[in-house]
Amino acid sequence: MYSEKVMDHFANPRNVGEIPDADGIGEVGNPVCGDIMKIYIKVKDDVITDIKFKTFGCGAAIATSSMVTEMARGKTLEEAMKLSNKQVAEALDGLPPQKMHCSNLAADALHAAIADYRKKHSA
């Protein structure tokens, strides 16, 4: 059983799509495991100004992707790096125990996108 918030984010996911000229792209998961999340970010003055996602996965995977994009938008990179899996799950009023790995993936995908940005812009 999912919370109403999870169902809302599953039915009306925020920020779905791709950013063609993204400053950073993060991808985690594997189709064999049944989950892939891909997060695209635009960054200006160390702040995430735009963020989008594409996800292959279950209801929780889609809802956590949607939630993490909402939570990260407008945050500085430093703040966004501190967003934890637990916070994503809590923001959705919790996840069933066997779905907790989905929330891990969402925060990991965000952190991977930031790492990708930093790698490209380290010079």
């Binding site: 991808e27 985690v28 998961g29 594997n30 064999v32 495991c33 892939i36 790995h101 891990n104 993936l105």
Partner: peptide
């Protein structure tokens, strides 16, 4: 299904 993209989550036994 590009299987090289795995980040080694190793959650699944079929991984």
């Amino acid at each position: 299904y590009d299987l090289d993209r795995c980040n080694g989550c190793r959650i699944s036994h079929t991984c």
